[in-house]
């Protein structure tokens, strides 16, 4: 279906370790523009490690494998180069930046990305209009933009703030790392609605989640199941429902019988 297009993200046989412990053990994934992918899996399966490695966190050692983003070798790029190239990570645990207002933060980020892409800094009026629209989309008032980044935000505000940043920065690929965790149902709907309405401007999503409930609102084209550092199963959205119904234990027994795993002594 997508032969005529170049993939946006290609992950080939990615092996990653942290502190001598191997976390990713051969991940393959290809995302084309216009696709929404979801990665599900139990805690500790390597989902968030994959997200962090894609965003450029330094604490990880790449043992093997390649990642291409929009035709470029992603693993050679600094985190800010990845951002400028159009990759965005919505953090599972957003970081507090005391003393830096949301407006200063967003404007600095936007202008740095524009500068990297050879564009002029944004003018104040356009910028303000843009962030206010984005805030409105996320159900956040203008006073929210005066506050210091994530300082004193509730859990739900922090998650909505990640999507607000995504709405302002307009990446090509957005990775949402457990954005649904800690959201009540109303906030979940707001976030899902924002994600859906930005789809198109944002070419592709990679949604990392433990639970199926976000996928009731954002419909993925592909669902991948991650287990013990590998994608052990891929399918369409019905796979998510199957996981929800049967739980990850089902997967564990399925996996053990169908997939070659390193032998354990137990």
């Amino acid at each position: 279906m997508h032969n005529e297009k170049q993939p946006l993200l290609t992950i080939e046989n990615l092996h990653v370790a942290v502190d001598d412990k191997q976390i990713l053990k051969g991940v393959d994934l290809t995302i084309y523009p216009g696709e929404i992918h979801a990665i599900m899996g139990p805690n500790g399966s390597g989902k968030s490690t994959l997200a962090a490695v894609l965003a450029g966190r330094e604490d990880y050692t790449i043992l093997q494998g390649k990642v291409f983003f929009d035709g470029k070798d992603l693993l050679e790029m600094s985190p800010e180069e990845r951002a400028a190239a159009g990759l965005f990570l919505a953090f599972q645990y957003p970081v507090e930046i005391p003393g830096v207002s949301m407006l200063t933060f967003l404007r600095t980020a936007l202008n740095e990305i524009r500068k990297s892409n050879g564009e002029e800094p944004i003018d104040t009026r356009t910028f303000l209009q843009m962030v206010r629209e984005a805030a409105q989309l996320l159900g956040l008032g203008n006073d929210f933009l005066q506050r210091a980044v994530n300082v004193g935000f509730s859990g739900g505000e922090k998650k909505r703030n990640e999507i607000l940043q995504m709405a302002v920065l307009r990446p090509k690929l957005a990775i949402l790392d457990e954005t649904d965790s800690g959201l009540d149902i109303d906030a979940l709907k707001i976030v899902a609605n924002a994600v859906n309405s930005l789809f198109g401007t944002i070419q592709s999503y990679l949604i990392i989640t433990h639970y199926q409930r976000l996928l009731n609102y954002i419909e993925p084209d592909y669902v991948h199941v991650m287990y013990d550092g590998k994608i052990v199963r891929s399918g369409d959205k019905t796979l998510a429902l199957e996981l929800e119904a049967k739980g990850y234990d089902w997967l564990r027994s399925e996996t053990l019988s169908s997939i070659e795993l390193p032998s354990t002594t137990t």
Binding site: G56, R57, S78, E80, R82, A83, A84, L89, F105, E112
Partner: peptide, 8 residues
């Protein structure tokens, strides 16, 4: 790191 992922 957070700021770097936002392009800084």
């Amino acid at each position: 790191f957070y700021l770097q992922t936002r392009g800084l």
